[in-house]
Design a binder for these strands. Structure first.
Lengths: 231, 231
DNA sequence: GTTAAGTGGAGATGGTTCCTCCGCATCGCG
DNA sequence: CGCGATGCGGAGGAACCATCTCCACTTAAC
């Protein structure tokens, strides 16, 4: 099927200067467009935003997935670094709540990152399910905070992605009106995480598999919410 | 637009017996289908589920909106009744938390109801924005719980819809795997609502208009409305 | 100046949904 | 029973949308 044209990537040959410039424009445009419209943005949008034709985008990036990866790969690394940094915090509680706040802010600021980090399948080209990579770290953070006595005993690492999904959902929909609204509800959840004798029973915790399944249902590969017709 | 054919509803004439039976089958099917698939379900789904042709559905209900109204009108009344009943609770705290739990459960069990109750515009044919009707009641409930000293001072009635949106979102996506998962996160939020000296600052509350705008963006009549295009 | 590399964007392709149309089936009255 | 009036099914029209291909044309680079 690829007999007709050869993507320049696959040959080691360097790109012509204008082509290289366009490639970078496309990546920059992808970052901007995905950040505001999420991964559901069309490649036409990206192309137009970059000031190039659609064909140019497809010649450089064989599929949308490849472009997403090129655009967001390092943002994912930043995310991972944030988790690692949280372990350095003076207390487990500060580390955990700081982490939640930082990641929530990142997701609020970059919808594409959110789609990629919390979404189930999607690209995950060669970077394994990011969540899975971070779970051990988060588990350590949580155990530490629980040992310190500040975090309630019945939360688990599996709750972190769910909390982030809820909060980023608020961020997403409140963004045009009150871009800071998500922080209010994150604070409410954080206050609920604190150990207290008044607190109620959380019921059964979610397993890691449950979380993966929920993530998959949350942002299915193409978020094609067809709209009701408001006549 | 309805010039070509005359829906039987508009004439006062009674339906033929088979037609009346079909009408009821359609409404029953609509309730079932909307409950599981949400208002995004297609009328073809409903028709098939009812065992009738699509044409039959459209003859009886001039638009999808009309069917939604016929199917969910009384469920909305139940919702309103639940809010009113919450005022009878022994304490404001019990009333509020019980209300949250009941409504969350209703939304978890009936996705169409959730779409209608929390969604911004949609039908609202003759029942005004439901939320607006309930706000005064919820405000009283909250003030009572705050006066009792159990509810933190910095929450407002406007937080209730947002909480329900978050929680019903969890219910929606976790349903196939762990249909009870939403209750866990609702409990977390409820624990965050309790007055406590440890709790952090929630920041600026949302106004009623903010809530309406968020609701409109949450279940938009069209998710992908052309945003100001890049150029 | 030559030529390979690069370009743009219309449109093929495949997907969705809402709703209409009309030949035929069924009801129920006289 | 017979015969309008009423109701029926569901193919398909119309309108959307996104991904990706193709090729006549432009441009870089030597």
């Amino acid at each position: 099927m690829t007999s007709t044209h050869q993507p320049a990537e696959s040959t080691g040959r360097p790109l012509r200067r204008d082509a290289e410039r366009n490639r970078e424009r496309i990546i920059a445009a992808a970052r901007a467009v995905f950040a505001t419209r999420g991964l559901a943005a069309t490649l036409d949008d990206v192309a137009h935003h970059a000031g190039v034709g659609i064909g140019t985008v497809y010649r450089r990036f064989p599929s949308k997935e490849a472009l997403v990866e090129a655009a967001l790969d390092e943002r994912l690394d930043e995310l991972a670094a944030t988790v690692e940094a949280a372990l350095e915090a003076p207390t487990g509680w500060d580390g955990l709540t700081g982490l939640l706040r930082q990641v929530a802010e990142m997701h609020a600021a970059d919808r594409g990152l959110r789609d990629l980090a919390l979404g189930g399948g999607w690209t995950m080209g060669h970077h394994e399910r990011i969540g899975t990579r971070m779970v051990p770290l988060i588990t350590r953070l949580i155990e530490r905070a629980q040992a310190e006595g500040s975090l309630r005993e019945d939360v688990t690492a599996a709750d972190v992605p769910l909390i982030l999904m809820m909060i980023s959902e608020v961020a997403l929909h409140s963004h045009p009106v009150r871009p800071d609204a998500y922080a209010r509800y994150l604070q409410l959840l954080i206050d609920g995480l604190r150990r207290s004798p008044d607190h109620g029973d959380l019921g059964r915790a979610l397993s890691q598999d449950d979380v993966d399944a929920v993530a998959l249902h949350w942002l299915p590969s193409s978020e094609s919410r067809r709209a009701p017709s408001p006549s």
